[in-house]
Design a protein around this nucleic acid. Sequence first.
DNA 1: CAGTAG
DNA 2: TGGCCTTACTG
DNA 3: GCCA
Length: 579
Amino acid sequence: MKVEKKKRKRAAQEEEEEEEDGELGDLYFRGIAAYFVETGIQPRRLQIWKQKLLQLGGVVEDHWSEHLSHVFAASVETVTDKCGRRKLKKSKTNVLKYTWIEDCLKAGKCLPIDSYVLDILPENRSVSRNSTENSGLRDNAPEKAVSSSLQKLTSSERATTSDWMQIINEGGEMGVVSKGLHKKETEGVCVNCEGGLHNTQGASSEEDCDMKNEAEASSAELAPARDAAPGPVDSLKNEPEAGYTPPNLNAHITGPFSEIKDIYKEALGDDRRAFSYYKALSVLEKVPFKITSVNQIKGFPTIGKSLMESIHEILSTGRFSKLEHLKNDNKVRVLALFGSVWGIGPATAQRLYDKGLRTLEELKTDNTLTPPQRIGLMFHNDIITKIPRHEIKEMEAIVQKSGSELCPGISIMCGGSYRRGKALSGDMDFVITHPDGHSHTGFLHELVRKLKSEDFLTEDLRIGIEHSTEGTDHGVDTWFGLCKYPGREMRHRVDFKVYPFDQYPFGLIAWTGNDILNRRLRLLAEAKGYSLDDHGLYPIVTDANGGKVKLSVSVPCKSECEVFEKLGFPWLEPHERNL
DNA sequence: CAGTAG
DNA sequence: TGGCCTTACTG
DNA sequence: GCCA
């Protein structure tokens, strides 16, 4: 968490499409008009594919129709659910696996489609396949279908495509939220929401039950939308969630980028530049193929001129001179080391350096460190060590058990990167509430005391405000500190946040992240005349003087998915929030 | 208030 | 060229 | 650092 839960900036905008692309030579996707069946595909990968397709001369449509040249899907099942078996067979559309796009990108050219065709079987789903018929259909030269489909592309359809890109690319400016996404929202949000709450990791049994009821309640409210589209809902419900953590194929780039990002942030205090690398990292990590040429990522969002040059250097020479330069600078190295200590930022690191200190050992002799910094220093090595998922799961159970003993019905959930399904996390973020709306008051102090007595919590780093018993304020109890995995002395960073029940969904979203999602939700809220933070969604109204005023009463939301829904943002399972 | 964190 | 988050605690 |  530590690393990724930081600054968020305005993410990249859509690039200016067709215009300049028209002059480039290698638009090997020219003439392709495609629809993407999204079921079972990570949103980020979809984004990249669509982007590349557009970039290289193709057209992406947000709905299926028979004039399209290509349809891409993860499997036969998903595509037939979405488009209908009969229609597909009737049309001349090439139905391909997504791997075709990946391989084309890798190859840098348009490959033959033969081995990528998804065979649409006749009515019975049995195994027998009519390869003759299929191959006959598929062997149509793409150009043929393409040219005709191109002619049918009206300017309005192209505009649709642009809208799509805009949304995919940024999620900002969502005031314009478009048809394609909107459709998906109304179809999928309720059922997905239910699934999402079911899937929440390690909730105590009572709490799991509560959450389930909550989800069902909200599903019921939205029943009309669901009833309106039974087919797609079924397919979404059965959607197999493949690979929560796709392998990063571009560690040769993201590794050095991550290093330089940390240096900019923790040693040099250049947050802006650091965040540029951070954003680029989140894009590069999800590129579904190994980048071997900068041409493959030309025009990607968040990757501008400078980063392109850096990537080019890494690809062609295997080195990253900018990073080497920084790492060879002894002062930068010391600043980065000091800055990696919890509680010590760039300014303090610089001050300590100026005092002549050079190592963590020497730092321990300094008497100007604050108590939290001293603790951060003492357990520096522990704290920077990532925690394996299964250990977090056990520790979550410990906290839940103690919490329940203390206050039956309390809900304690570990959010952060753990909830997003990561295999390793830098820390643990516990988000706590109580469904009765009042028992959370004063709970945190007791919980911390009990967990300390059990030798689980060890050191305090920071203690948050006291929660008002009146409930008129927005106070959220917080506690930051360290804990021990049972039987071991190593310390881990732990955060607790206790929310009143009505603010809980907002807190849970905020502390599940990731940062980029939070940023997008916040921008979207802003565009729709709201202000979103970790305890509510507040309408912004214009007062008599024309000034903007944030109402103090939040739009009520009983669940995470209700927040997504109110914002008009397509529902994302926790593991889908690694944007 | 600056510095720091999430 | 300037904007790129917000809020709250520590000392 | 990226972007409008």
